[in-house]
């Protein structure tokens, strides 16, 4: 089942239990990572066996599963991935989330009917970005929740691709998909799980190893020096974006999919997060003002570290 219609709630599934919690809390679809291939990092990925379990759970709920294959593999790894998709497609996956326009274009050529989502890491921010990604094969493009509904309303009439907005996310200092601070300090090549050849995951690189291992560089205390003089001790700014109250505005702007970040959240928090947005979305669909949505408390360590 692919994502169709507007106002689909796409929730995180960092584990079988978290996927179950998302589905029970009312998600229309869950997105999960496959070990070694997912930007969510090692803590938020599933083995093939676990993926099959989640597919069964979703099927029972009439929901869809999106598979995040959104690290950027290297040449021979891409060949392996393209072949592997033949098997994954047969399992009934609703679509693939990809992080590189080139890989997206190639997979679209090989599997023209497979729904492909251009991940937030593709960096789309404007109409031209979305249009180009659509032209090369994306059936859905993810935009950050830092974009206002009015900006999305400007894009919507000009593209056919679905527009997905991550309206619950950590807005870090550097934009998602445009940060190389962690790998500047450290990279740690490690074997790629579930890959028979010499696959390599570049831990430390957000794009090539997964965000779950970004070493928290921006959340370290940094001394700020002005002309060589220490003037402050600070972290780089980051904030939680969680725009449940604006769900109606996003839907009216033409957003098709409401996405929630959080594949490494504890199961109980996934449930309450998804429940909160389910309530907001249902109110919006009924034409009601979003109200009474319970606040969502994040663990202190979640910001940046535990997306």
């Amino acid at each position: 089942m692919s994502l169709t219609g507007r106002g689909i709630l796409l929730a995180p599934g960092g584990s079988v239990e978290a996927s179950k919690a998302s589905l029970e809390a009312g998600a229309d679809a869950v997105y999960v990572g496959l070990k070694g291939w997912s930007r969510g990092g090692g803590r938020g990925e599933l083995t093939s066996g676990e993926l099959i379990q989640v597919l069964a759970l979703a099927r029972n709920k009439g929901a869809s599963v999106q598979l995040a294959l959104n690290t950027i593999p290297k040449g021979h790894e891409i060949d392996f991935l393209v072949e592997r998709l033949r098997e994954l497609e047969a399992w009934g996956i609703g679509g693939i989330i990809l992080n590189d326009p080139g890989i997206l274009a190639r997979i679209h050529q090989c599997y023209p009917d497979f729904p492909l989502t251009a991940s937030i890491g593709c960096g789309a921010l404007n109409l031209g970005d979305v249009a180009l990604l659509e032209e090369i094969g994306a059936s859905c493009v993810v935009l950050p929740g830092t974009l206002d509904p009015a900006e999305i309303a400007e894009i919507r009439p000009h593209v056919k691709a679905q527009i997905e907005v991550m309206i619950h996310m950590v807005d870090e200092f550097h934009q998602l998909g445009k940060c190389w601070m962690p790998s500047f300090y450290r990279t740690n090549p490690s074997p790629m799980p579930e890959m028979p050849a010499d696959g390599e995951r570049l831990t430390g690189s957000i794009k090539r190893g997964g965000a779950g291992v970004c070493f928290k560089v921006c959340q370290q205390p940094w001394g700020l020096y002005f002309n060589g003089q220490h003037v402050d001790e600070r972290m780089l700014p980051a904030r939680q974006v969680s725009r449940a109250a604006e769900v109606s505005a996003y839907i009216e702007a033409g957003v098709d999919v409401i996405k929630l970040q959080g594949r490494s959240l504890p199961v109980e928090q996934v449930f309450s997060l998804v429940q909160r947005f389910r309530m907001a979305l249902d109110q919006a669909r009924d034409g009601r003002q979003v109200a009474g949505v319970p606040p969502f408390e994040l663990p202190r360590s979640w910001v940046v570290v535990g997306r």
Partner: peptide
């Protein structure tokens, strides 16, 4: 964010 040969080729 040009990481791959295919990405460069698309551009």
């Amino acid at each position: 964010n040009v990481y791959t040969d295919t990405g460069a080729a698309v551009l």
